[in-house]
Amino acid sequence: MENNSVHRTSVEYRRKKSAKEMRNQFLTFILMIFFTVISFVSVAYNDLFPSNFVAPFILLLAGIQVIFQLYYFMHASHKGHEMPMFFMYSGVFAAFLTILAFLTIVWW
């Protein structure tokens, strides 16, 4: 019986915690929509902005969105994600080298 009541409080605590996480995830979603709209608008009206500003700007916004996806939607901010993030950052490192090589030293 005692064990049961301990369970019940921990259930309530956990539900509150995950409801709070849910609110944060929803805010993250709103920000992602906002960044996406900014990206599209800055390209749709690119005669207003210099193109050597627009390109790095929208790439930065994409980078932020991916961080949001990984850390909030895919729960990488929770503990126990050290190994997964090691895998992902290794993948990103290989990705960076591949793209760098194809854009600079590969002759077409």
Binding site: P84, F87, M88, S90, G91, V92, A94, A95, F96, T98, I99
Partner: peptide
Amino acid sequence: LFLGGETVLFA
């Protein structure tokens, strides 16, 4: 680990 590999595939 698979998703890390997929990152390289898409790269």
